[in-house]
Design a protein around this nucleic acid. Sequence first.
DNA 1: GCTTCCATGTAATAGGTTACATGATTTG
DNA 2: CAAATCATGTAACCTATTACATGGAAGC
Lengths: 181, 181
Amino acid sequence: MTLDVRTICLGILSRQEASGYELQKALKEDAIGHFVEASYGSIYPALTRLMDEGLVSCREFQQEGRPDKKIYTITPDGLEVFRQALLEQPADDKFRSEFLFFMLFADQISTSHLLELIDNRFAHVQERRDLLALAEPSETPGEQFVRGYGHTVFKAAVEYIENNRHLLEPSPPQVRRKETV
Amino acid sequence: MTLDVRTICLGILSRQEASGYELQKALKEDAIGHFVEASYGSIYPALTRLMDEGLVSCREFQQEGRPDKKIYTITPDGLEVFRQALLEQPADDKFRSEFLFFMLFADQISTSHLLELIDNRFAHVQERRDLLALAEPSETPGEQFVRGYGHTVFKAAVEYIENNRHLLEPSPPQVRRKETV
DNA sequence: GCTTCCATGTAATAGGTTACATGATTTG
DNA sequence: CAAATCATGTAACCTATTACATGGAAGC
């Protein structure tokens, strides 16, 4: 289990210093957000622990009307730990899909609801594909590879749904065309 | 959070009765195993709870040299609960990838290790693609759709890695060809 | 002879999500 | 005027993973 929230934080901090809030935002907004996630409830405790372990340091900035902003910086020890984590064998990808699970039981779902489910999923996958189509100007090769990977996969999913949804939908009653004489 | 282990068990049991052991095996071997998972440590307690709630019933078969086999059957109540679960909005897919996270930091990984990581992943994705290429003869349309979805996505991933791994690899030193006179 | 398959189950542990608590400022 | 953004953090809860416990039979 190398990819705990602490490792994720170290990774982002290896690129740039950031606050807990900014770390979460980065995970939500950047391409990587499609492949990892972490909530505030896990990020803040992770940062506290990284401090205790001396893997990050922290500067505080006073602000008016809101809590002090704490900017975390990775330490040499932290960088060392992160580089070491990168040497471990990454765990298998996890691709969990409630949607696909549901589709296994398409025959137990009413047609109207089924159509709604498929339409929603289709829109959702399209949206993700489009989000991942846009390159940021400052993108590193790694980021480009990862974003491209996501884009490719979602593009394939969009096309697949388009071309194969008929497998799930009960064929509409064939209207026998009146033979015109 | 509709897709807990209990719902997964109900789903499979809506198709056929099974023991806890068989449920886990089905999740490991069938196409669906690529999109959901559950370990014995979660399946057995889930079945116990489903029993308490009256959503499954159980017949025991004595066996020699191993624990009694408990075959679980879904009850009408259980079927009702499952059908109801299918009406909820499925949660977003979760696609967690340590590999892709690592690749964001390709510049912090030694070339030899990086090549190993990419080769491993490539082989892994190829294997999954091939596993999902094979249709079982008894496949339902839902199963066909789900398996095809997986196959398509992994196929796209294989091709993407093949065509774009160069983004991550430092270009080998150009050997300047000796100009022949 | 070792590994895998069959077959159930418990317990310790680890980890995350969600909701809560607080509150000013900016944007729509 | 409502919602989102900024900003941190805690605590209750839930759930799953992992390892453990047991052990015969079959396949390699």
